[in-house]
């Protein structure tokens, strides 16, 4: 279980994340929504140990991740908002490399890489250098690299950005297949993705967590027919207050 307590991050005057508190269950699929600049990426960076919060704490299984960052990082993996692959390594090498730095031995790395290429339909491009792949294929590789370490918690920052319709559906199916096996924290601007995948949704606005619950909860709470209307209402309401 992940417990986020009063998480805050300021960059000078600007408060990117503002006293965010939240618990995410083990195996839960959690979607983080919010307009551009709402603080989603910054939140993910802090939970994954990439950025030190200005204030607050993150507790996984009763232990602050900052008490043993190295060990906590072993449990997590991330697919950053921008595609992150080694350009001159092949698809296979990128995957094996990632597995190895998470502690898998050579044989395990080869097997896991094969599985991931199969899962993400990259097998026929196994030997292609990552930089020669199309944007969408690089994206898929980047996500596969996040999954290869078999993390307990995986962060997917706008994973379907730039994927074609079929690749997006395929990714949804992969993620649905993983549901319950690992905790998945995803950000996206596609609301249908959230409805198809997420157990629970959080909507951030100006660094604050403004709405939290299942899609149905939120619809009921805001008395709207669609998540989109809820989203617009949450982000608009705040605009008036600010």
């Amino acid at each position: 279980m992940i417990e986020i307590r009063e998480l805050t991050k300021s960059f000078g005057e600007r408060v990117a994340v503002d006293h965010l508190s939240l618990s995410i269950e083990k195996g839960e699929f959690f979607a983080l929504l919010g307009s551009n600049g709402a603080g989603k990426t910054t939140t993910i960076k802090m939970i994954s140990g990439l950025q030190t919060p200005t204030n607050g704490d993150i507790i996984i299984d009763g232990m602050s991740i900052f008490s043993n960052l190295q060990q906590s990082k072993q449990l997590m993996n991330i697919s950053p908002q921008e595609t992150a692959v080694a350009p001159n390594l092949s698809v296979k090498e990128n995957l094996e490399f990632t597995a190895k730095i998470y502690g898998f031995d050579k044989n395990e790395a080869i097997i896991r890489a094969g599985e991931m290429m199969e899962k993400f339909s990259l097998t026929d491009r196994a030997k292609a250098k990552a930089k020669t792949l199309s944007g969408g294929l690089q994206r898929r590789l980047s996500i596969a690299m996040a999954m290869i370490s078999n993390p307990r918690i995986v962060f997917l920052d706008e994973p379907t950005l730039g994927l074609d319709v079929r690749a997006r559906r395929d990714l949804w199916n992969i993620l649905l297949g993983l549901k319950g096996q690992m905790t998945i924290i995803l950000t996206t601007h596609y609301l249908e993705e959230v409805e198809a995948l997420a157990d629970r949704v959080g909507i951030m606005h100006h660094g604050k967590l403004c709405a939290l619950g299942t899609v149905d909860d939120l619809k009921e709470q805001y008395n709207k027919n669609s998540l989109e209307e809820v989203f617009l209402s949450v982000t608009e309401e705040m605009e008036v207050l600010v």
Partner: peptide, 18 residues
């Protein structure tokens, strides 16, 4: 410089590399 500029180094920073 290239690793820092792309998100690749960010991915590594999230890994257990010391």
């Amino acid at each position: 410089g290239k690793d820092r500029g792309s998100s690749f180094l960010m991915r590594l920073f999230a890994s257990p590399l010391s």
